[in-house]
Design a protein around this nucleic acid. Sequence first.
DNA 1: CTATTTGCAAACCCTTTGCAAAAAT
DNA 2: ATTTTTGCAAAGGGTTTGCAAATAG
Lengths: 135, 135
Amino acid sequence: MEFLTVLKERGLKATPQRVAVLRELGKKTHPTMEEIYIGIREENPTISLATVYKNVNLLKEKGMVIEINIPNGKMRYDYLARPHIHLVCKSCNCIEDLDYDENLLNFQNILEKSKGVVIDRLDVIASVESCSSCK
Amino acid sequence: MEFLTVLKERGLKATPQRVAVLRELGKKTHPTMEEIYIGIREENPTISLATVYKNVNLLKEKGMVIEINIPNGKMRYDYLARPHIHLVCKSCNCIEDLDYDENLLNFQNILEKSKGVVIDRLDVIASVESCSSCK
DNA sequence: CTATTTGCAAACCCTTTGCAAAAAT
DNA sequence: ATTTTTGCAAAGGGTTTGCAAATAG
């Protein structure tokens, strides 16, 4: 299993609960804490919500997971394979992952030069009222 | 006063508390709910925190105020004169407003065309570890 | 005069914490 | 054997709500 290696690399113990959290986050669903909890409970009915919180936060600190802070919505979480941005639809609540494009990289470079800073993190959330999959 | 007109246009009553909320948000400080409350109390010591919440949320619904959802930080609010993006510094907690540039507009256009959507809102938050004003 | 808004306190999330038992290395 | 992690229940923090009194238009 890929996750076992990834955890070992960061010096984290591979408990069944932790692996389950990673597995849930690995699905392309961008779940909330609650949804991760509910998802895991189907296979591991004894996991506690507190454990989910602790693990997601730990994985976030280790840079393996990011928060997606959707306008007027609950916090969602995503397994971070590589940096990407999010397209969220207010009608069907779907979230699509998109790669950075050239324009966004240009934007970032110009900003870094003009302000004399190093951008550590660029959160981009594009919100639409309805998308192609919800009509 | 500008705010009185703006409120009237949206059919909202111009209570002293509401005007004070707008005045606080008009400062370039990107305050939290608590900070708005504390700021107003200096002049209007009887305002309640609940009233601040109610007003900020109402102004948000009416499109006069936006939330700024900073990674790992409290929610901040901003009087929305015209759309802009935010450069936040983790060291000094400052937030600088920046205008959209050509690259960002290109990015938005391309995304709209390729996905067949209309972007209703584009939240861009660039985070830096330290900025020019905090060394 | 009527509809909205305020302020208070209680209720309501969501999230974190302390700690003893369990599990991983 | 040592350190980390779990699960529980309680505490914490921010936000919302219900309602009577006050205020704006």
